[in-house]
Amino acid sequence: MNNNSVAFIVAGRRHRRRRWILVTSLLTVLACALCCAMLLLGSTIYPVKDVIRTLAGEQIKGVSFAVNTIRLPRMLAGLFAGFAFGIAGNTFQTMLRNPLANPNVIGITAGSSAAAVFCIIVLHTSNAVVSIASVIAGLVTVTVIYLLSRAKPFSVGRLILVGIGMQAMLNAAISYLLLVGAQQDIPAAFRWLSGSLNGAQMNQLPPLIISVLICTPIIVLLGKHLSILELGEQSASSLGVNTDQTRLLLILSAVCMIAIATAATGPIAFVAFLSGPIAKRLVGTGFSNALPAGLVGANLVLAADLVGQFAFEVRFPVGIITGILGAPYLIFLLIRMNRKGQL
């Protein structure tokens, strides 16, 4: 390899690094701007100085309750849940080398949803119990999917098919529970299933925030191994990657965030599905797009919630807006994969 080739490769890598830094920085700035908008906007628009004084601990009549009790928990729930959905969805799509391999499609969020609906309709439990049950159910669901699809050699198609079957079974269980449930319990279950930031409370957010702060570094540190897994099972093994251990750590980290985020906000549609492809298009190749995908997810949820609150005469849950965005992309993706013979 001559000096010109080396210089060309080095220049290309520097360009990709600058692009990654620029895109990540812009996504961070956009997320901060949307967070500020979430705190400032509402039925009453408060001055910036009053919001800052309230966040600093000063009590201002009217402002303190609206900001600290309603808007701040809603903003934090959207920020961290969106980040969790984004980075976890990207992890599954990259690891399994398939854009359809996201937690919504392979049944993980359906497991959490089934447990939550059962607690709401049958057991009539508190929100705390609903959250705990949905987290446990999400972890159990992915364990069952992994065990049923685990064989040598590991097959992405097998895991996706098992996950789709699990999702169909769990969705059928949810439909049955909604059908036989008492009339007064149905609205609460539907609100949870639609994915919403309404009613977010500060005392419900620590598990979500802690899971994101713990699991994100694990996924980022395994980013190089995650990229190698894209090459396939045999190639990754020949390059010295312990594929089973790496895959298990990535799955556990991603599922933990997905389950806890679902417990906090409900299954916000298509955020995990959209974030990875958008981040990959913005960042390009050569560097891990885990962090950009998380930031894209956070921006999607925050922006969709603002649109749902203020763009229409009737206020819509955030999951309705993200569903409107994600459904056309899913149809486009299926058509494109069919044309390429990938379905």
Rank of each mutant, 00 (worst) to 15 (best):
M1R: 09
N4C: 05
V10T: 13
R16D: 10
R19T: 10
I21F: 14
I21N: 03
L26C: 15
L27R: 08
A33I: 14
L40D: 00
R53K: 13
T54S: 13
S64E: 07
F65H: 08
R74L: 10
L79N: 00
G82S: 04
F83P: 02
A88F: 08
A88L: 08
F92E: 03
M95C: 12
N102D: 15
I106M: 10
I121P: 06
L123G: 00
A128Y: 12
A137D: 07
V144G: 09
Y146G: 02
L147W: 09
L148V: 11
A151M: 03
K152V: 11
P153S: 13
S155L: 03
L159T: 04
L161D: 07
Q167S: 14
Q167H: 02
A173Y: 06
A182I: 00
Q184P: 00
D185K: 02
I186N: 02
L193D: 10
L193F: 14
G195Y: 03
G199N: 14
P206L: 13
P206D: 12
I209Y: 07
I218A: 04
L222N: 03
I228N: 04
Q234T: 14
S235F: 04
S237T: 10
N242C: 05
T243E: 05
L250F: 08
I251P: 01
A254T: 10
M257D: 04
M257I: 01
A259E: 06
G266H: 05
P267V: 07
F270L: 03
V271T: 09
V271L: 07
G276Q: 12
K280L: 08
L282R: 13
L282D: 11
L282I: 13
T285S: 14
G286L: 04
F287I: 00
L291H: 04
G294D: 11
L295S: 11
A298I: 07
L306H: 12
I321P: 01
I331N: 09
Q342E: 15
